[in-house]
Design a protein around this nucleic acid. Structure first.
Length: 844
DNA sequence: AGCACGCCGACT
DNA sequence: GTCGGCGTGCTC
């Protein structure tokens, strides 16, 4: 069966080119080009990279315009067919282009760009021979400048256009002219960002008797060569040239001579860059399962053995041993010749985590994380594609690990927002995982101590037939250790009693006593609260939107308060509307401020500060934690990153500076995120012999997210939170699509945004979808806005957004995409950008 | 996105 | 007269 045509998605990010283009497959590439192949194709006036998404037999129609594939870029297609299918699904689900979906699936190293190579045209060489001095005869029509360039190109054979441009600056026009005259010719080839790493190896070609003869044949002068051969014979396996040179202190010339005599061969072989090659990992054995773990393990194992698609939501308290369950189910999966993907939030891809998996599975594991170089990442990825490993661990994008026979996908901390990509393609790894597992008949485990409401609701109600996980629970800690005592500190009381510091008296005393006893403290600051909101320091009143039940954002420029959902605005009050106090002000605090205050209150205190500023350097994260572990600091102060998976034996106090900073963000998930974080943080203290204590400072001590986090009570929290969500028709009781329009000209943008929202409304009405979500019906759709985006201008472009909120299984994404397309088409102005975020996580 | 084509203003 | 400004339209 010979396919003659390849349908190719080209690497040109525009709406008009977001469809397959047909190319003929040259004889030489037939059989090699498959679905998922990466190719170089002529496109317009240049060559671009593309991906083959399907193959066709010859079609008689429109054959005249069809060009051939220029180049096949990899011997093995980088994408197996199921990933191409997944890309199609992603593009539909998230309203993004095919090329962006495909690009997200391969390592950045393979984002090839065309390189233009220039050489002297063939007929020119033939006509005028090869000798340089015949040039003046041959080109009477060429100017001196032109001649100089041609001579240069001829002498070097083939040069890149870039090189030629730097060698002959300001003469780009002349070079272009020579190409169009046919004197010079141009070839475009796709060049990858990294090459495979090659290493030279040396091996002896003789052995036994032959070797004896060879060794005795060396003269005294060639004694170094003799040493090399002896060494090679002793070792008996090929060695890297580098190794031979450094151990014997000989030069490459010596080895080369040996090769010339035929006693050895030097070969170039490709190697994998292994970022962990110099590290030894202590092997670990599976632990004895607790009864709880055993129940969970058997349920999942049964599903694995069935080899049919299934999803589990594993709700286990911090320290209940979820990781051990993962490890053992992975073991079971790979022992049946199938592979497993483990997804973790980037932030928890810590050395401890790595050690645990490497310790159990050793070289069967590939690690994909953002700190790897392009080359290292590419190599880890190739180990997966070539079947050299059975387990892939990584952040979000590891869901695209090119395994061919997936059996299990584990998603740890499934509630983490980092699983949603904020750039195009704006996919959620959880949904992609479920779809991929379905393709492979694989099992998904979503694990968390504080599951997302979406997952928990789906598991509880079994309502969504596409994704209804089976709920599994683990409520005990195998170690028998107790969850720490959590104290809520009312900061309003502190102020009333005259304490204006950011530390309550209780926390202050706590830190002081830890300093005395030589124990350690972790202080947590929620960075998400950095944006400003208005709050009364006397009574805790927070300005909220009357329509949306969400706190308002303070805008300094206009001195008013605004709602990001409905556009409501009101002047900023100077006294509290609730209690009349003048202590009303906008809030916001940073780690630096806390550090400064600590230094003032506790002279000589050693603070390890972890935030974006101090951890931007490679490895800084690990270094800071190591320093704290070695007790080079009394206090570890940081944001999110101190909350995750850390385990220090001497930490007996955890303080949350301001629990409610995130609560007041204009985000309907504010309570959920606060609860998750507080629960996470509270799990940090007292994990070992020393008992732990947690202080949560807050201005809203009665808020249910704070109360239930302090009681380690997930169920009660969820009950209240679902009530709130249901009342306002937020997920999981509805689905959201956030559409952001941007343009340089504000009036035009505003008009377009109004038009867009109007068109959606109109079309939805015609389809019978439109209507208030309050009405009793399984299908309803509402569109809010347009309103100015939380960041109203980025890079000189104004931004407006609309929020589509709906219930039912209608293809609303399709509708939004269609209207976006026509809006664009009608305006004929390519500078209008419309970005669509399906299931948005960040609403500000 | 590029890149060429094409139609109007400041220069040798 | 021509060089070159960037609007518009196409890419199998």
């Amino acid at each position: 069966m010979n396919f003659r045509l390849a349908q190719v998605i080209v690497d040109v990010p525009s709406r008009e080119t977001d469809r397959p283009f047909d190319y003929s497959i040259p004889k030489s590439m037939q059989g090699w080009i498959e679905v998922g192949s990466r190719v170089g194709v002529p496109f317009g006036h240049r060559t671009v990279q593309g991906f083959v998404v399907s193959l066709k037999k010859d079609s008689e129609m429109d054959s005249a315009r069809i060009k051939p594939v220029a180049e096949l870029l990899d011997l093995v297609p980088p994408l197996p067919p199921d990933l191409v299918e997944l890309a199609e699904w992603m593009s539909r689900k998230y309203a993004c282009s095919m090329i962006s979906s495909l690009q997200a699936m391969i390592p950045a190293a393979l984002k090839g760009k065309a390189e233009r190579y220039i050489s002297v045209a063939e007929q020119e060489k033939e006509n005028y021979g090869d000798s340089a001095d015949s040039l003046f005869v041959m080109q009477p029509l060429l100017t001196g400048e032109e001649e100089e360039i041609v001579t240069y190109v001829k002498a070097s054979g083939s040069v890149t256009l870039d090189h030629l441009n730097t060698r002959f600056p300001g003469q780009a026009g002349i070079i272009k002219g020579l190409i169009s005259q046919g004197v010079l010719s141009e070839v475009q080839l796709i060049k990858d960002k990294v090459r495979k790493k090659m290493v030279k190896t040396v091996a002896a070609t003789v052995s036994g008797n032959e070797a004896e003869v060879a060794l005795s044949s060396f003269t005294a002068q060639a004694r170094r060569q003799k040493e090399v051969l002896q060494f090679l014979l002793e070792v008996g396996i090929p060695l890297s040239l580098q190794e031979v040179l450094s151990t014997l202190r000989v030069t490459a010339g010596t080895v080369k001579k040996l090769e010339e005599k035929g006693y050895a061969v030097i070969e170039e072989v490709e190697v994998f860059r292994d970022p962990y090659q110099n590290r030894r990992f202590k092997g670990t054995e599976p632990l004895q399962r607790t009864p709880e773990q055993d129940v969970v393990y058997s349920r999942i194992s049964a599903a694995l053995d069935d080899r049919t698609f299934g999803t589990f939501l594993l709700h286990g308290v911090t320290g209940s041993g979820k990781t051990e369950v993962y490890l053992q189910t992975i073991e079971r999966c790979i022992s049946s010749e199938r592979q497993a993907i483990v997804l973790v939030p980037e932030i928890s891809l810590t050395p401890q985590m790595v050690e645990r998996f490497k310790g159990r599975f050793g070289s069967k594991v590939a690690l994909l994380h953002s700190r790897l170089s392009h080359g290292e990442r590419y190599d880890e990825w190739r180990k997966i594609r070539e079947g050299k490993v059975q387990v892939a661990i990584g952040a979000r994008s590891a869901i695209f690990a090119p395994f061919r026979n997936l059996g299990l996908i584990v998603m740890d901390e499934e509630h983490e927002t980092s699983y949603k990509q904020e750039e195009t393609p704006k996919y959620h790894a959880r949904d992609v995982a479920v779809h991929r597992a379905r393709q492979h008949g694989a099992v998904v485990i979503l694990g968390s101590a504080t599951p997302s409401l979406e997952s928990y609701y789906a598991a509880r109600s079994q309502v969504d037939d596409k994704f209804a996980p089976v709920l599994l629970e683990m409520k005990q800690r195998p170690s028998g250790s107790h969850l720490p005592a959590v104290h809520i500190v009312d900061m309003r009381e502190e102020l009333r009693d005259g304490n204006r510091s950011m530390f309550s008296r209780a926390l202050h005393a706590g830190i002081a006593s830890r300093l005395e006893r030589g124990e350690q403290t972790v202080l947590f600051l929620n960075r998400r609260g950095y944006s400003t909101f208005v709050m009364c320091r006397t009574c805790g009143y927070v300005a909220g939107c009357p329509e949306c039940d969400i706190s308002l954002t303070y805008h300094q420029k206009s001195n008013n308060l605004r709602c990001h959902y409905c556009g409501y605005a009101t002047p900023a009050p100077s006294v509290c509307p609730e209690c009349g106090s003048e202590h009303i002000r906008y809030f916001g605090t940073g780690t630096q401020r806390v550090e400064g205050e600590l230094a003032k209150l506790f002279p000589g205190i050693r603070v390890v500060r972890m935030d974006v500023d101090t951890t931007s350097e490679k490895g800084a994260h690990e270094k800071l934690l190591q320093a704290f572990r070695e007790k080079k600091g009394d206090v570890l102060l940081g944001t999110q990153m101190v909350a995750k998976g850390l385990d220090f034996p001497d930490v007996t106090l955890v303080g949350v500076i301001a629990a409610d900073t995130a609560l007041n963000l204009p985000d309907f998930r504010a309570a959920e995120k606060t609860f998750q974080l507080l629960t996470q943080v509270a799990g940090r203290a007292g994990r070992h012999q020393l008992p732990g204590e947690v202080f949560i400072q807050t201005y809203m001590p009665e808020h249910y997210s704070v109360v239930h986090a302090s009681g380690h009570d997930y169920d009660s929290f969820v009950r209240e939170e679902l009530k709130y969500r249901k009342g306002l028709h937020y997920p999981p009781y509805s689905k959201l699509i956030l559409v952001t329009l941007s343009h340089e000209k504000l009036p035009l943008l505003l008009r377009m945004a109004e038009n867009f929202a109007g068109d959606i409304r109109l079309k939805a009405q015609r389809l019978g979808w439109y209507g208030n979500l309050d009405r009793f019906s399984s299908e309803a759709l509402d569109i809010m806005g347009p309103v100015a985006s939380p960041i109203p201008r980025i890079k000189n472009r104004y931004r407006f957004q609309c929020m589509v909120k709906y219930r039912g299984s209608m293809d609303v994404v399709g509708l939004v995409r269609e209207i976006a397309l026509t809006t664009h088409h009608n305006l004929r102005d390519s500078s209008l950008q419309i970005s669509i975020d399906v299931d948005p996580q960040m609403l500000m």
